[in-house]
Write a protein that binds this DNA or RNA. Sequence first.
DNA 1: ACATTGAATTGACTTATATCAAGGCTATTT
DNA 2: AAATAGCCTTGATATAAGTCAATTCAATGT
Lengths: 196, 196
Amino acid sequence: MSNFEAFFDYIQEISGKLLSANDKHLLMAHFKPKKLRKRQYFLQEGDVCKYIGFIVKGSARTFTVDEKGHEHILKLSLENWWLADFESFYLLTPSRFNIEALEDLEVLQSTNAQIEEFLKHVPAFSAMANAISQNYTIANQKRMQAAISYTAEERYEDLIRNYPQFLQRFPQNMIASYLGLSPETLSRIKKNSFKH
Amino acid sequence: MSNFEAFFDYIQEISGKLLSANDKHLLMAHFKPKKLRKRQYFLQEGDVCKYIGFIVKGSARTFTVDEKGHEHILKLSLENWWLADFESFYLLTPSRFNIEALEDLEVLQSTNAQIEEFLKHVPAFSAMANAISQNYTIANQKRMQAAISYTAEERYEDLIRNYPQFLQRFPQNMIASYLGLSPETLSRIKKNSFKH
DNA sequence: ACATTGAATTGACTTATATCAAGGCTATTT
DNA sequence: AAATAGCCTTGATATAAGTCAATTCAATGT
């Protein structure tokens, strides 16, 4: 299945290790392809995030809804990213988040218990997990720094630098929410940044 | 050395595995005790973060200085936490951060190359690394959500709930900076929160 | 013990960002 | 093709938070 080829390439590239034929069979046996249409939910608030998904195609947003009914986007996710509420996934607690497909979405999904097995038995998989953990730590540190020390305009410029794909793939109001801004404010920032 | 006992206990508790006598000798051979007095720097902006430190005693802050000379605290760290700029430590790039002792500080420190060895040869150590990675991911997700969707007052309440020790150990202006607030604003928030 | 420095508070004022409301444009659905 | 819904922009106004300055108090160094 061509779905899995991209997945295998990704694992091998990021881990720097090769997958054996056996490894590949094991992964194919326990990652299930799942398709969601735009607007469908991968996870709903209150449910346990039983599955982690590797995005083969499409995009999604992870968001909360506050008491005033306002949505706040914590993550925007694209191809070759992992999709889950990790807190709920690791601890098996009810999630505070919703995860919704923003475009038609194809993922390969598996459970926490299965992931533990891959970590034990597939060296490339566990090397990948370590590499991802490093990347996430670095990305989180950068984003947190931006959140506490940058102005709205600087955060937007930072996003353009780090995730230029987002501008192509996501509507501006989603990007505003991801940056912690109102859509109006982002619109004004874009207008003013011409002047600089 | 009593320093190491606390360290070993920590590793065993968080990993759920025991350290052999051999493991302990290996750790003691390659983690060097280091003491810093209050105000001394564990890391300076521009330097590569060669060492990761396990805090045995004391506290530290990780912060940046922006173009206007304002300091922004990204992390506050206490006993049994790991101290490093992980981006610089993993990638061996010059750090954008400073790490300064806020109280007299005792750490056990080691290099990235050594850590790799421990991960390979000490099962409890690598299990600990995986557990920490999960905890960090969860904590980062929470803090990021707070940053984009909470008001200043809600972020402060969140801090009281999650890290009550901070109020005892750190001056209020440090906490304000950690929350991304001016000291004056935090002072006013405290005054007003009596009214609610 | 005295002098100095740093921390916290408060008031007055400024600035950044949110909110509310309206209008126009575009894409999607029927 | 018409109707609809979603998205973006703009203006007017409100609110939250920052800045600057002054004062008090506590902690620290000599």
